[in-house]
């Protein structure tokens, strides 16, 4: 082998090294960004639960939920900011190369976004809305949203709705809301079922959705059973309970404990 060949081999491998290093470095950056996105999204979900639960006597449900959603969107702007900076990292055919690094955070983001959207609109956020949320002001996407990430993110929403409906039970109107959520999660489950054929991970997540749905159904059942003993409309029953329960709490009843 001529020594010029040796040089050529070396040169070629130097190119390979640069390519591999660049790949690994970009991969690391995306993993780190994805962790940040996951954390922000999880915090947003907690925020939404908190805002809904804290309530505010002056607001009705619609106002309360809309306000919570707005604050959620605000927090998610941070995530969108990160995605804006990632645009060059995921350009062209790169998105699919780094899909496994991007997906976990993206799905968590979609879960948070769809929760806020549900609070505001009472429906599933459409695909185009999610894509728009990760696009620049001109509507140019930071990267192409895959159907799989969209659906897998939405699927996680049902778990949050289960929490939302059960822990909201003691809120005024919470019982009625639980009925609504029950119907909504049922329709989610039915909609998603059609896609499990194509998206394997969705099948696993459907099991989680089924469990969540059963928990909601049990809740709705308990409401039905208890109110069926009385011949009064549910709203009136709620009022009675609220009255009696607040009468028993005149600023601390520690004395007779």
């Amino acid at each position: 082998m001529a020594s010029s060949d040796q040089g050529q081999i070396r040169l070629a491998f130097q190119g390979f090294r640069d390519e591999i290093d660049a790949y690994n470095d970009r991969r690391e950056r995306l993993i780190k960004a994805s962790r940040d996105i996951t954390n922000l999204s999880k915090k947003t979900i907690f925020l939404l639960h908190r805002l809904v639960l804290e309530g505010d006597a002056s607001l009705d449900d619609k106002q309360l939920f809309t306000r919570a959603a707005k604050k959620g969107y605000e927090k998610l702007h941070q995530v969108q900011g990160i995605y804006a900076t990632l645009k060059p990292e995921l350009e062209g055919d790169r998105f699919w190369r780094y899909e496994r690094q991007v997906s976990p955070g993206l799905q968590e983001y979609i879960e948070a976004l769809s929760f806020a959207y549900y609070l505001e609109h009472g429906v599933l956020i459409p695909y185009n809305e999610v894509q728009k949320s990760i696009s620049d002001a001109e509507g140019e996407p930071y990267f192409h949203l895959t159907v799989s990430d969209y659906l897998l993110g939405l699927s996680d929403l049902t778990g949050e709705l289960m929490r939302f409906s059960i822990s909201g039970l003691s809120r005024k109107g919470g019982r009625r809301k639980a009925l609504e959520v029950c119907a909504f999660v049922r329709s989610c489950k039915a909609d998603f079922e059609r896609f499990t054929e194509h998206i394997r991970d969705l099948r696993k997540k459907q099991n989680v959705t089924n469990n969540s749905l059963e928990k909601i159904e049990d809740t709705v059942y308990a409401i039905a059973v208890r109110s069926s003993e009385y011949d009064l409309p549910p709203e009136m029953l709620d009022d009675i309970v609220a009255t009696v329960s607040s009468q028993s709490n005149p600023g601390g009843g520690e004395d007779d404990l």
């Binding site: 082998m1 081999i9 070396r10 070629a12 491998f13 390979f16 090294r17 591999i20 290093d21 690994n24």
Partner: peptide
């Protein structure tokens, strides 16, 4: 012997890579 030279060069090339 020829193979030996060729493979040694290749191995040196591979050694330059930072592999995961």
């Amino acid at each position: 012997i020829k193979i030996s030279h060729f493979v040694k060069e290749l191995f040196a090339g591979f050694s330059m890579l930072n592999l995961k």
